[in-house]
Simulated scan of single mutants.
Amino acid sequence: MPVAPPRPKDLPLTALRAFEAAARLNGFAAAAQELGVTPGAVTAHIKQLEQTLGAPLFTRTPRGVRLTTLGQQSLPQFTQAFDALGQAINDLRAAAAPRTVHIATLPAIAQLWLSPRLPALRAAAPDITVSITALEHPPNLKRSPYDLSLFFGPEPQGRLTPDTLFPVCAPSLAARLKTPQDIARFPCLSDATWSDDWQLWAQTLPDPPHIPQGPTFSLYALAVEECVNGAGLLIGHEALVANHLKDGRLVAPFPQRLTLPRGLRLWSDRPLRAGTAAKFVADWLRHRPADNAPLASPTPPATHP
């Protein structure tokens, strides 16, 4: 008679993923944001894992959670394993759709910087499909299905241009502004993401003007459009309002500018292999073919049976 002993219970993959994310990011809420679930779901997964193991992975305190010795010992291997799994998944996606490039970026960058460049990019490489996802924060490219990330950040790697701030407004409003002190007579528009823009810029002046509180917009692109409509002044991010300044929809009424210790960055956490669509798109965006010699069309990556 064959022997069929009971098999030890496997540890659930979703619970292991929740543990690794919470341990690496130092919190359940941060892990939930990265995984796209609720903090309650992360808590439940980790509780299930601890019950299955019969040992705690986190110590709960009024100030949050802290890894136990067991959790600290286990984290490096799981981080390495999930990084490798993420790489394998992304390699599989790329092989299945080699002419599709996925870009994650801030909504304002997607609308004001990236979107105007897409027609020329399609003309340069009509066989490549560019998919854009607007996110509020840069994703973990080792774990998420994106090839490129386009956000403002302090790191020099992949920097396309500095982030320079200055007031902008419609030409009709600019005609009524002589000095920065005149700002006090008009509404100052703001954006919820960059709510401190006005103060950052004003503090660089010897005599900071009064900044009247104007409407606040949840999307920077909406604030830009209202600024074009003459609703008030807005702090322009040079990379995002360059087209509006070029065609005269907006003007910069004052010469004073502030360059922040960050810039618009385009990067990937994975090596971009020569000849791939992602490498072509990254190089095209970095070198701006309108100002440089056209880039050679990419060749399809080699496939293996």
Rank of each mutant, 00 (worst) to 15 (best):
M1Q: 10
P5I: 03
R7W: 02
R7F: 05
K9I: 13
D10P: 15
D10A: 15
L11S: 04
L13P: 04
T14A: 14
A15W: 07
R17D: 01
A18W: 09
A21F: 02
A21R: 14
F28T: 10
A32T: 01
A32W: 01
Q33E: 15
P39G: 07
G40A: 05
L49W: 05
T52M: 13
A55M: 14
P56C: 01
L57K: 00
L57P: 00
L57R: 03
T61W: 04
P62A: 12
R63E: 14
G64D: 09
R66P: 00
R66T: 11
L67T: 01
L70F: 06
L70N: 00
G71S: 10
G71V: 03
S74L: 15
Q77P: 00
Q77C: 08
T79D: 11
T79K: 13
A81Y: 14
F82M: 06
Q87Y: 10
I89G: 09
I89W: 15
I89C: 13
L92H: 15
T100H: 14
T100F: 05
V101E: 00
H102N: 10
A104F: 00
T105W: 13
I109H: 04
Q111K: 13
P116K: 11
L118W: 11
A120I: 06
R122C: 06
R122T: 08
R122N: 14
A123H: 14
A124G: 03
T129K: 15
S131P: 00
L135N: 02
E136D: 15
E136L: 13
L141S: 05
K142P: 00
S144D: 11
L148T: 07
S149K: 06
L150T: 07
E155A: 15
G158F: 10
D163P: 03
T164Q: 08
L165Q: 02
F166Q: 06
V168F: 02
A170T: 00
A170W: 06
S172D: 15
A175N: 09
L177H: 09
K178M: 11
D182S: 02
L189P: 00
L189C: 01
S190D: 12
D196K: 12
D197Y: 13
A202L: 08
T204Y: 09
L205Y: 05
D207T: 14
P208W: 10
P208N: 07
P209M: 02
I211G: 00
P212D: 01
P212V: 00
P215W: 13
S218C: 06
L219K: 11
A221H: 12
A223H: 08
E225W: 09
E226Y: 13
A231D: 08
L233P: 05
A239N: 02
A239C: 05
G248P: 03
A252I: 01
P253Y: 06
F254G: 03
P255M: 08
P255C: 08
T259M: 10
L264I: 04
R265V: 03
R265G: 01
P271R: 07
R273F: 10
G275F: 12
A278F: 06
A282L: 07
W284D: 01
L285P: 02
A290L: 11
N292D: 14
A293R: 14
P294C: 09
A296E: 12
A296V: 03
P298F: 13
T299D: 07
H304Y: 14
